[in-house]
């Protein structure tokens, strides 16, 4: 502390952070019943992150793989957050979002593209997914790719189980995976009119 600091300390209440224009990457923190998500879009509005990882880790990954101009600008994520809320509430079964898994390796992108074809309420296995991309012996690599899924929920890695029917792993923790599977099972198309069993 010096003489200038003590004078400036009296101004502190009038100082505020900058309001920056839309830039290369905007992100927001989004709390859901499944856990806290970090969601991000690029300048074109494509979803580039939907992750359970901590804010600093996701922001650093985006800085490295998309652009260092990464800003926390929640207003640019309003549509993304609304769609996630609807999904978690069971009123939405698919996402109307452009996506870009830029931080994924080429192999992981192949896995994620195959996964995107697994419909709401259905499940598959690591082995079936490996077979679907023509690499039937790569179950473990498929599991690793899913573990690093940069777009959780939207790219439904929670729909992938072990061959014996057990849950396997999940970036958001097994309770979140269990909750997502239960959510989808409870909101299958047509079930709205089905009689309770």
């Amino acid at each position: 502390m010096n003489r200038f600091d003590t004078a400036l300390a009296r101004l502190d209440a009038t100082l505020h952070p900058p309001a920056l224009p839309a830039s290369d990457v905007a992100y927001a923190l989004h709390d859901t019943s499944l856990g806290r998500l970090v969601v991000a879009v690029d300048a074109a509005g494509s979803l580039v992150a939907c992750s359970y990882d901590p804010e600093a880790q996701v922001a650093e990954r985006l800085a490295r793989t998309v652009s260092p101009r990464v800003l926390r600008q929640p207003a640019r994520l309003d549509d993304v957050r609304r769609q996630i809320d609807e999904y978690v509430a069971g009123t939405r079964r698919g996402f109307d979002l452009a996506t870009s898994a830029v931080s994924a390796t080429p192999f992981a992108r192949t896995v994620l593209a195959a996964l995107a074809r697994v419909p709401y309420g259905a499940t598959t296995t690591y082995h079936a997914l490996a077979t679907a991309i023509g690499a039937p012996r790569a179950s473990r690599a498929v599991g690793n790719a899913l573990g690093a899924n940069p777009l959780v929920i939207v790219v439904p890695c929670h729909r992938v189980l072990r061959g014996d029917g057990s849950l396997g792993g999940y970036a958001g923790g097994l309770p979140a995976k269990r909750a997502l599977l239960a959510l989808e099972a409870a909101h299958l198309p047509g079930d709205a009119l089905a009689a309770p069993r």
């Binding site: 200038f4 400036l8 952070p17 992100y27």
Partner: peptide, 22 residues
């Protein structure tokens, strides 16, 4: 290896505002 710009804002916005005001 530039850090995300938001980290600069979070870490330094007050220092920038103080210098600007001074």
């Amino acid at each position: 290896g530039l850090p995300p710009f938001q980290q600069l804002v979070d870490d330094h916005w007050r220092d920038v505002a103080r210098l600007a005001a001074s």
